[in-house]
């Protein structure tokens, strides 16, 4: 049975990754959005390096949050529209594990590219060199939590009117701790302090979210498909 579970997870993951690979524009849009939002801040606030250096960590994190949020719709809505989500719910494998696999696929196609793109944008914001490692590490720990929490919101708002805006209303308040410690870690590293406390908390969030949130996502999917 456990081999069956493993196969199911691998299939779900491969299917979502293949779908993403066939429609590269869907993957690229949140990334372009990420880059544009970051570029708006120098235009709107000030191109002064000193100011941008202070704003940088927060701007990068807020933009990453919003980009993740934009991509959440993609997580279940296409499967919901063509009915394959119902088959996933009906499958004999535990739904929480399958939801976790889909969330992982979402992170691989959204969170990971965001992380890879972030150093380039950090250059634009004059982030001190010492903070780059911390930025990558904090995003590496934080973005999976964004995908996990976002998955619950996406599952709850499946097929609802005004789903996108509603989703942001549900999910953004829950994102605040990640934003605080993610941006905090980078700020600490940029000002020469140890980001260890922030990173430890981000890691703790990730572990707790990994353990519990897939079950909440599964429950939300069941409620929405009932």
């Amino acid at each position: 049975m456990s081999s069956g579970l493993f196969t199911a997870v691998a299939c779900a993951l491969r299917r979502d990754l293949t779908l993403a690979a066939r429609k590269p524009a869907d993957v690229a849009t949140p990334l372009v959005f990420f880059a544009i939002v970051v570029s708006l801040f120098p235009l709107g606030v000030s191109p002064e390096p000193a100011i941008l250096r202070g704003l940088g960590p927060g701007v990068l994190w807020v933009a990453a949050l919003l980009a993740t949020l934009l991509s959440l719709n993609r997580l279940f809505s296409a499967d919901y529209a063509d009915g394959s989500l119902e088959l996933l719910v009906l499958s004999p494998q535990p739904l929480a594990v399958l939801a976790a696999a889909k969330t992982l696929a979402h992170w691989l196609t959204t969170g990971l590219p965001l992380i890879l793109l972030s150093p380039v944008l950090a250059v634009q914001l004059y982030l001190p060199e010492a903070a780059y490692g911390t930025l990558l590490l904090a995003l590496l720990l934080g973005t999976p939590v964004l995908s996990l929490i976002g998955a619950v919101g996406a599952a709850l708002t499946l097929g609802l009117r005004g789903g996108g805006v509603l989703l942001s209303l549900l999910v953004l308040p829950l994102y605040t701790p990640i934003l605080i410690f993610g941006a905090g870690a980078v700020t600490a590293a940029a000002s020469g302090f140890s980001p260890e406390a922030h990173l430890s908390l981000l890691g703790a969030f990730l572990v707790v979210a990994l353990a519990f949130v897939p079950w909440a996502t599964a429950a939300a999917l069941r409620i929405s498909l009932d």
């Binding site: 619950v152 709850l156 549900l170 829950l174 909440a216 429950a219 939300a220 409620i223 929405s224 009932d226």
Partner: peptide
């Protein structure tokens, strides 16, 4: 049910 789940989270 959706509201309850959200409230619990």
């Amino acid at each position: 049910r959706a509201g309850a789940l959200l409230a619990l989270i």
